[in-house]
Amino acid sequence: MKSSALNSSGNAFPAPLIACDHLSCTYGNGTVIEGVDLSVHPGEFVGIVGPSGSGKTTLLKAMLGSIKASHGSVTRASGLSVAYVPQLETVDWNFPVTVGEVVGMSRPQKSWWPGSSSSERQAIEEVLERLGLGGLVQRHIRELSGGQQQRVFLARALIQKPDVLILDEPTAGIDVTTRHEILHVLADLNEGPPQGDGIAIVLTTHDLNGLAAHLPRLVCFNRTVIADGTPSEVLQPYFLERTFGAPMEVLQHGGMPIVLEQGSDELRLRLSRKGAS
């Protein structure tokens, strides 16, 4: 079931942008991820699904190079530009920083003076405009909706003109409409030219039906790669149980797999009985 060579274009394999080879990472005295083989190719859109604490974020950080491999290796194509969008939870929303300052901080400071040049200001305005954040340059990051906050950090990543965009739980804690909005933006970025930018995207999520089932390639992950392929290949009871440690049912609806937790009927019955008594 390990079809890591399968990419969204489907044909001849171009050289991978990022390749994890028997990768293991250790934090303190515990191994967090172990023996991971995973490659990301140009133009791919990969979703990594797994429960909390399964090492998804660690895998992303290893791919970014901010965590060292204890075994195996991560190889990035030479000259590759990778941008990272952190989980919104990790952001300090009380920090005194405006939307413009967040986007601008990732640009290298070319002269001794830190202010933005006019071309830089224009580049920032353009990215913000494109993500629907026009006119918010002076806003404090707390004075935004959840979807806008997510897009500010996306803008900071995009202004670095990345080849690969890595996002940690981009839809955690945001509502359904916002989730759609973010997914559409990502799909635009992923789409090849002339419409899109052809940026390869890797994201983590634990939202199986709302997000994962829509992606071209999914990786079930729990400490290591359990399955890798299209949603219909990967979203199967056997793999899901091994990934999430709980039995799950998979239904088909309009050609798309829908994952249900087993035993949810029983739980509902118990709770409704409680309500009635």
């Binding site: 950080k61 941008a83 990272y84 952001v91 990732s106 640009r107 290298p108 400071q109 900071r156 670095q160």
Partner: peptide
């Protein structure tokens, strides 16, 4: 300025960048 701001606000992403 920019490096100090980035490293103070968001050290993880600053390191990656």
């Amino acid at each position: 300025y920019r490096k100090l701001l980035f490293a103070t606000f968001d050290p993880e992403v600053a390191g990656v960048s």
